[in-house]
Amino acid sequence: METVLSVNKLTKNFGKLCAVNQLDLEVKRGQVFGMLGPNGSGKTTTLGMLMGVVNPTAGSFSWFGEPATHQTRKRIGAVLEHPIFYPYLSGQKNLELNAMIKNADPNNIAKVLDIVELTARKDDKYKTYSLGMKQRLAIASALVSDPIILILDEPTNGLDPMGIAEIREIIKRIANDGKTIILASHLLDEVQKVCTHFAVLKRGNLMHIGPVDDVGKGEEIVEVQAFHDDLGVLLQEFVGSGPIKKENGVFQVMMKDGFHSKDLNRFLFDKGIVASHLATRKKSLEKQFLEILADAK
């Protein structure tokens, strides 16, 4: 697969503070790449360097296999931190300006306004927009040049649940169009739902990089609930049971290798017990994320 972004030993120091330390990354075409990390872990600084607004202390990176210039940036749609627009210009005029800077076809504007559902408010001044509308206009401006790659930094920051769901839908739709997306976020649930790959940063260091599908691989946790007083004891008798935990009245059985929920179900059935709740849980990204960060200590 074609490499879209390649980062080589990228470093940024702010005085004594090392915000990004010798970062190596590679993003391939078609990936939805999540960048995770606590606040202040260097996500935005990294993206700032990749977009030419922060001067790197050392290291290099290339977009589309060419050295980065302002011309390569025109082919990238990016929103860093929070939406930035001219408050006194309307949404439409702001997008016209973006299109001019990016040498994009102005006919795209109507299309991207439609995608983010802002057509009805396009002639109102930006400063009258709600936070959700501002975020959506930012996504529209990133899309206006029909970019190969999209960079979104905390696109759902500060939004209400409905706004978050809307933005997530938009991102999924864009990803389905085959665009490469780099998504920085500390909302792990969000990354797990939309990303194919992810990297974890901590205090400027890369802690982990890999596909999201690998998260929780090889470990299967089965949740069981049944109307039986000694269910906990019984479950321990099952040969496939690993450690068992009880949470909110539900038993969580970590399965040994080669055993699955159906084996547990058959075991219970043989014992004359019918489970009222039986579900397979994969380890969440959140758990893995916390583990990765804990390991680093």
Binding site: M51, V53, R73
Partner: peptide, 17 residues
């Protein structure tokens, strides 16, 4: 103040431009 300089550069203007 509006940080639009930053966004202009992100959008693909060089600083000199």
């Amino acid at each position: 103040q509006y940080r639009t300089l930053r966004q202009n550069v992100i959008d693909g203007l060089s600083r000199w431009e």
